[in-house]
Design a protein around this nucleic acid. Structure first.
Lengths: 69, 69
DNA sequence: ACTTTACGTAAAGTGTACTTTACTTTTGTA
DNA sequence: TACAAAAGTAAAGTACACTTTACGTAAAGT
């Protein structure tokens, strides 16, 4: 799964720490998400989409068996 | 968090077991999701939205601190 | 009556999303 | 070149999404 969190965040001109505060998660969580180290929960994905004013499906690109065959 | 999985499933006229097979998850997972016992992963939410031909945000209703304040 | 189909509960186990703390590296800028 | 802000790594712990197995119930068909 790919995501465009970093691109959307930088285009809002906010730091990882500021984003983490808006989301009430740790800064590590943001770093790990941007690095693709793990997949966010549905609720976290929803909050990210709210902040970036887009749909969840616009933020994440699902690949391979993450799609229905 | 509320969801309309049961409504969408029954309107497709498929059983919990058939849905679980399409998703490659256990039937228990479907039962628990429909009963609201837990929140699906982002990938599972995406697959459900694909099957029901809708956006993730149409399937789930986020409440309270599941939204940005 | 008996079987099948669909839905449900319970409980124990596994994997991973996310946290916390502490330390290091990079980058911008005075 | 020195300093601070921003980004990064590592590692150990917690919570919960999801699995597996096994059993229970109620309706519908034969």
């Amino acid at each position: 799964m790919k995501n465009s969190i970093r691109e959307k965040r930088t285009s809002l001109n906010i730091t990882q720490e500021e984003l983490s505060e808006k989301l009430h998660v740790s800064r590590q969580t943001i770093i790990s998400l941007e690095k693709g180290k793990y997949k966010p929960s549905l609720v976290l994905a929803h909050k990210l989409a709210q902040i970036f004013d887009c749909m969840i499906e616009d933020l994440f690109t699902f690949e391979g068996d993450e799609n229905i065959d």
